[in-house]
């Protein structure tokens, strides 16, 4: 097993985080750091963008920042 594969950037993982609480893009990127997933920065950005487009989360502004969230 790859040492860098302890966290996986999947739609299900993103869904779980966004159902729990609203998050910014930066919050999400912190959850899926490249050193934890083994993906490159570019892959992380691309995959996360695809997942967010599919999930189509609701958005709200908290402390002047766009946050994404999903209702259960």
């Amino acid at each position: 097993t790859p040492s860098s594969g302890d966290i996986q950037l999947t739609e299900e993982a993103v869904r779980r985080y966004l159902t729990r609480k609203p998050m910014t893009t930066k919050d999400l990127l912190k959850k899926f750091q490249t050193k934890k997933t083994g993906l490159s920065s570019e892959q992380t950005v691309n995959v996360l963008a695809q997942i967010l487009k599919r999930l189509n989360p609701d958005r709200k502004i908290v402390h002047d920042k766009m946050h994404f969230y999903l209702k259960e």
């Binding site: 893009t25 930066k26 990127l29 920065s41 963008a49 487009k53 958005r59």
Partner: peptide, 20 residues
């Protein structure tokens, strides 16, 4: 580094811009 995180967040937001 935090600047790399900032760059990634900016790239991600740019990717999502059309969509948002």
């Amino acid at each position: 580094s935090s600047s790399e995180a900032d760059e990634m967040a900016a790239a991600l937001e740019a990717e999502l811009n059309d969509f948002i």
